[in-house]
Amino acid sequence: MTRTYSNIVDRSIQALLDTIADKHTEPALYQDTMTKIGMLLGSAVLSQISDTQGNVYLACTVEDADFLAKGMLISLEKDLQKVAFACFWNHRFSPFEIEDLKVAPIIKKYQEPVSQSVNYLIIVKSIISGACVVKTNIVDLIQSIEPEKIFIVAPVMYFEAEEKLKSNFDKSIYDKFQFFYFAKDDERTHEGEVIPGVGGNVYTRLGFEGQESKNQFIPEIVKSRRRKLTKV
């Protein structure tokens, strides 16, 4: 097993990654650590955004909304005039029980209105392994918006995930990709769990009972942002 770190990682970030990799970390600390990691990733992304008046769209999955994505929004909204937000509920499974074949259809989504032309589309996920969820959500988003750049952000990635994701898109799309991550791991179990990754199944680590549980959950950040939209 080999873990490599990106050039934006220092010892304090390594300590946060060790906390989420530790299978004994309690859900409350795990959630708090993910939020802190999100803030740090948000700062890294901000350093690559030259136009603070531009259109920025942040998209996440439901399990990450109140933690990782919330942390990113805290950082982004300090310097950016407006950040639109989208949240996806994906159901990930293997058709015909073929383990190497994964799909992740969207069963529900929350998507804030934004102009068709977007300067920066930011896709954040707690871990990117097979990339099927990220692929599905990007495909859905680019049906209605035309991003100039697509930032793909995760604390941890499997070492083959970048090329796997790019292989699903035409060059005109993947040329827009820029990846932000803290660590890459090169080992997975037969069940597909990245080692050490994020310490196991991120649904249960964050306090959900599993995929069905997280897909019935409505994040607080979605509730609060929806309320603000209805008051406008």
Score class of each variant (00 low, 15 high):
73 L>I: 05
73 L>T: 07
73 L>Q: 12
73 L>V: 03
74 I>C: 05
74 I>Q: 10
74 I>K: 14
74 I>H: 11
74 I>E: 13
74 I>R: 10
75 S>G: 10
75 S>A: 15
75 S>P: 08
75 S>I: 06
75 S>L: 08
75 S>C: 11
75 S>N: 06
76 L>H: 05
76 L>T: 02
76 L>N: 04
77 E>W: 11
77 E>T: 15
77 E>Q: 15
78 K>V: 06
78 K>H: 10
78 K>D: 09
78 K>Q: 13
78 K>F: 06
78 K>S: 12
78 K>Y: 11
79 D>R: 13
79 D>S: 15
79 D>C: 14
79 D>T: 13
80 L>F: 05
80 L>K: 02
80 L>S: 04
81 Q>D: 05
81 Q>K: 13
81 Q>N: 07
82 K>P: 01
82 K>V: 10
82 K>D: 08
82 K>S: 12
82 K>N: 09
83 V>F: 02
83 V>L: 02
83 V>M: 01
83 V>R: 02
83 V>N: 01
84 A>I: 00
84 A>G: 00
84 A>Q: 07
84 A>D: 07
84 A>F: 00
84 A>V: 01
84 A>Y: 02
85 F>E: 00
85 F>P: 00
85 F>A: 01
86 A>L: 00
86 A>K: 00
87 C>K: 06
87 C>N: 13
87 C>G: 06
87 C>L: 11
87 C>F: 10
87 C>I: 14
88 F>W: 02
88 F>L: 01
88 F>I: 01
89 W>D: 05
89 W>F: 05
89 W>T: 03
89 W>G: 04
89 W>A: 07
89 W>C: 04
89 W>H: 12
90 N>F: 01
90 N>C: 11
90 N>M: 02
90 N>I: 02
90 N>T: 10
90 N>Q: 04
90 N>L: 05
91 H>Q: 12
91 H>T: 10
91 H>P: 00
91 H>L: 07
91 H>K: 14
92 R>V: 05
92 R>F: 04
92 R>C: 09
92 R>D: 06
92 R>G: 08
92 R>I: 03
94 S>W: 05
94 S>N: 15
94 S>H: 15
94 S>C: 13
95 P>N: 04
95 P>E: 04
95 P>T: 00
95 P>V: 01
95 P>R: 01
95 P>W: 02
96 F>A: 15
96 F>G: 13
96 F>Q: 15
96 F>I: 14
96 F>K: 15
97 E>Y: 10
97 E>A: 14
97 E>D: 14
98 I>R: 07
98 I>A: 04
98 I>N: 09
99 E>S: 15
99 E>W: 04
99 E>L: 13
99 E>M: 13
99 E>P: 12
100 D>Q: 11
100 D>W: 07
100 D>S: 14
100 D>M: 09
100 D>L: 12
100 D>T: 14
100 D>R: 10
100 D>Y: 11
100 D>F: 09
101 L>N: 08
101 L>P: 00
102 K>H: 14
103 V>I: 14
103 V>P: 00
103 V>R: 05
104 A>P: 04
104 A>Y: 03
104 A>K: 05
104 A>I: 03
104 A>R: 02
105 P>R: 09
105 P>Y: 07
105 P>S: 12
